[in-house]
């Protein structure tokens, strides 16, 4: 047993690798939990501002288009990287096959965050139509870096009606003081 422990400690790569795994697991799980909580809070806040993939005609018929105050494109983007532990798990699943739940949660978080940022840039809108999502993996220029960060875009057109349910000077404007409110 002692021999095994000393053999393990002498193999520096193994020691560093397992330390990275443990740190990645603990801190990564903590980050993920906090991020999911923040996402849920903000999604509840934007409950009344839906982002839909359908065209404008499905919501406002063409005969009522004079009721629209503004229609502006809004964009939200985020770059998220998986932690070392979850990356390692995906490597194991590569061999065994099957669902990689650890990566599913990262992709899900990235997409929801991008949609939320898009909504946050248009807090005065009534609806965001024609929403499109795009995911892209980035390639860092560090040699031998296997983990690919995920870049997600969400873009759509924010519609504000003349008889908007949101007043022009509402709490939303105060809640996002560092953002340019365009609607």
């Amino acid at each position: 047993m002692n021999g095994l422990v000393t053999a393990y400690l002498q193999n520096h790569e193994l020691v560093v690798g397992s330390a990275l795994l443990i740190v990645g697991y603990i801190v990564g799980t903590l980050f993920q939990r906090n991020h999911l909580r923040s996402i849920q809070e903000r999604e509840a806040f934007f409950f009344k501002l839906p982002a839909v993939t359908m065209k404008l005609k499905s919501f406002v018929p063409e005969s009522h288009w004079d009721q629209i105050e503004s229609a502006r494109m809004v964009v939200g983007s985020v770059v998220i990287t998986p932690d070392y532990f979850r990356y390692f798990l995906s490597g194991i699943f590569d061999v065994l096959g099957g669902k990689v739940k650890s990566y599913e949660s990262i992709v899900d978080r990235a997409r929801r965050e991008a949609i939320l940022r898009m909504k946050e840039s248009a807090p005065m809108a009534d609806i965001i139509v024609n929403t499109r999502l795009q995911l892209d993996t980035m390639q860092p220029s560090i040699p031998n870096m296997p983990i690919r960060p995920l870049a997600v875009y969400a873009y759509g057109t924010a519609i504000r009606l003349k008889k908007s349910s949101f007043p022009q000077s509402s709490e939303e404007a105060i809640r996002f003081p560092d953002q340019d409110i365009i609607l």
């Binding site: 932690d83 990356y87 965050e113």
Partner: peptide, 15 residues
């Protein structure tokens, strides 16, 4: 980004 990918999360510089 390389260091951040040990613990995971957003990369604000990239964003």
């Amino acid at each position: 980004a390389g260091f951040k990918s040990i613990i995971g999360g957003e990369l604000p510089m990239y964003t």
